[in-house]
Amino acid sequence: MTRKWSQEVTEHSDALDLDEGVFAGDDPARIAASLKHSAEHSRRRKGTPFQSAMSMLTFYINRAGKQLPASRRRTLNEAKDELRKAFGRPAHG
């Protein structure tokens, strides 16, 4: 089976060690909390924990592109808002 480069990045990122299935959950707050935890405990990230966590979430959303169902996209975008809250950042927009 051929592996895509984006799958390689998600599974073997130099920035974060992600919990398995982190993006599969239905609870945006849990997704955000997992990403925050991974970012804060990573010793390999290049930016701040917030930048690393948000970058990985955005990468995942963009990687899925048009294949991502609207309900999943909504959940993951809500996870962005939860991530901002978790890091004490202002809401987007």
Rank of each mutant, 00 (worst) to 15 (best):
M1S: 11
T2K: 13
R3N: 04
K4S: 14
K4D: 15
W5H: 05
S6I: 06
E8S: 07
V9C: 00
T10S: 03
T10F: 08
T10Y: 04
E11M: 07
H12S: 13
D14N: 12
D14M: 09
A15K: 09
L18V: 06
D19A: 15
D19W: 08
E20D: 10
G21P: 01
A24F: 11
A24R: 03
D26Q: 12
D27W: 05
D27L: 09
D27I: 12
A29Y: 04
A33Q: 12
A33K: 05
S34V: 06
L35W: 00
L35Y: 04
K36H: 12
H41P: 00
S42T: 06
R43A: 14
R44M: 09
R45I: 09
R45P: 01
R45A: 05
R45G: 07
R45V: 01
R45M: 07
K46L: 14
G47M: 10
G47R: 12
T48C: 01
P49A: 05
F50A: 05
A53E: 01
A53K: 00
S55Y: 10
M56R: 02
M56V: 10
L57T: 01
L57C: 07
L57E: 11
F59K: 03
F59Q: 04
Y60A: 01
I61N: 01
N62W: 13
R63M: 07
A64E: 15
Q67T: 13
Q67R: 09
Q67F: 05
P69V: 08
R72S: 11
R73W: 07
R74W: 05
R74K: 14
N77Y: 09
N77A: 06
E78G: 05
E78C: 10
A79E: 04
A79P: 00
A79Q: 00
A79W: 02
L83T: 09
F87Q: 06
R89M: 15
A91P: 04
